[in-house]
Design a protein around this nucleic acid. Structure first.
Length: 328
DNA sequence: AAAGTCTGCAACCGCTTTCTT
DNA sequence: CAAGAAAGCGGTTGCAGACTT
């Protein structure tokens, strides 16, 4: 059988902690150390449940907690980690000494997220928001050629645009139109969030996938940098097609041949000892939108703070040992 | 000055994972 | 090994203070 209940919920106090309660908890923990939260409230003379005590200690009373405003460096770290880890607040907090997951979560929701939205950045995908654009008018009015697409590069999610370029350059304009329409519909269906996954679930199998793309687009799961966090998505030296739910990106500057399986395999086979194909494919390789004064997202009226935040989101590291040009 | 609205954050809720018996 | 509690975690809520009308 399991353990006995941690506490009788009846009659236990809830809500804000008083100074007296804080003192009792601090004194007890200083004497006996944190842990054993089940018996702590009774032993410390607190009318709280153990869970409440644990939260109060870890989020507020712990002596190593750094209080006060987040520094620029901390904010930048949060944004970068969030782009990789998503809402894994505890994982983010583990990399920010003195900050709790709750504090980071609150700061994200009340400050960073709002600023990103204000700057036209999707806080979920960390890319410019596709829904801010009228893709349908682009499709209806403009010739879908390479130069038109490239002229949009400062506006559209660069990954999507690159994929569009890829398709456009291979005389695949019908597919491009379908793809962009699907991106747009998906965006609207997802509360205006720019999707990083393929447009809809019925497309996410190998058969229907080929409606849109030739197999030279590699599944990279490129938002995931830390391989320890996920099962390897590139088994052995195989280049695999996306499966349901997989994410994909195409590096900036990719030509249509760059991701042909043979190219990847050649690169893999000729790798040096420390060349790690997984890390290459798992790492976002784009340096997406040119952040210059003509960008509509970072313009002359943006504050330095805004610029820094925006720029910082796209700092990705290229794995050591990778000659990126060789891939192109 | 009062009422209404917004903002930030501590604390709670409920689900999942880990641990103990 | 199973049952069930503790611990961990992310999402949400409630409230106090700040700000706006």
């Amino acid at each position: 059988m399991g353990r006995s209940p941690c506490c009788d919920k009846n009659g236990l106090k809830k809500g804000p902690w008083t100074q007296e309660e804080d003192l009792k908890l601090m004194e007890y923990v200083q004497l006996h150390g944190p842990g054993n939260w089940r018996t702590l409230p009774k032993n410390a003379g607190l009318q709280r449940c153990g869970k409440s005590c644990r939260l109060r200690w870890t989020n507020y009373l712990r002596p190593d907690i750094k209080r006060g405003r987040f520094s620029f460096e901390e904010e930048e770290t949060i944004i970068q980690l969030h782009s990789v880890l998503g809402n894994k607040w505890s994982a983010i907090a583990a990399r920010l000494p003195g900050r709790t997951d709750n504090e980071i979560k609150n700061y994200w929701n009340t400050h960073i997220r709002k600023r990103l939205l204000r700057n036209g950045i999707d806080p979920v995908t960390h890319t410019p928001r596709l829904d801010l654009l009228d893709i349908s008018s682009i499709l209806n009015s403009a010739q879908l050629n390479l130069s038109n697409l490239l002229s949009l590069q400062t506006l559209v999610n660069p990954e999507v645009l690159k994929l569009a370029t890829l398709l456009a350059s291979s005389s695949n304009q019908e597919n491009l139109e379908m793809f962009l329409n699907n991106q747009m519909n998906q965006t609207l269906n997802n509360n205006n969030q720019l999707p990083n996954t393929l447009p809809s679930t019925q497309l996410l199998n190998q058969d229907t996938y080929s409606q849109y793309f030739s197999p030279d687009i590699v599944n990279t799961n490129s938002q995931i940098i830390d391989q320890n966090l996920v099962p390897p998505c590139i088994p052995d030296n195989q280049v695999i097609l996306p499966s349901e739910g997989d994410q994909f990106r195409v590096p900036t500057g990719t030509t249509e041949n760059a991701f042909q399986p043979s190219k990847i395999e050649d690169k893999y086979n000729s790798r040096s000892e420390n060349f790690n194909l997984d890390s290459v494919l798992l790492t976002p390789m784009s340096s997406p939108t040119p952040l210059n004064s003509s960008s509509t997202l970072v313009n002359s009226s943006s504050t330095d703070d805004d610029r820094e935040t925006y720029c910082s989101m796209f700092k990705f590291e290229i794995p050591e040992g990778l000659e990126f040009d060789d891939f192109m």
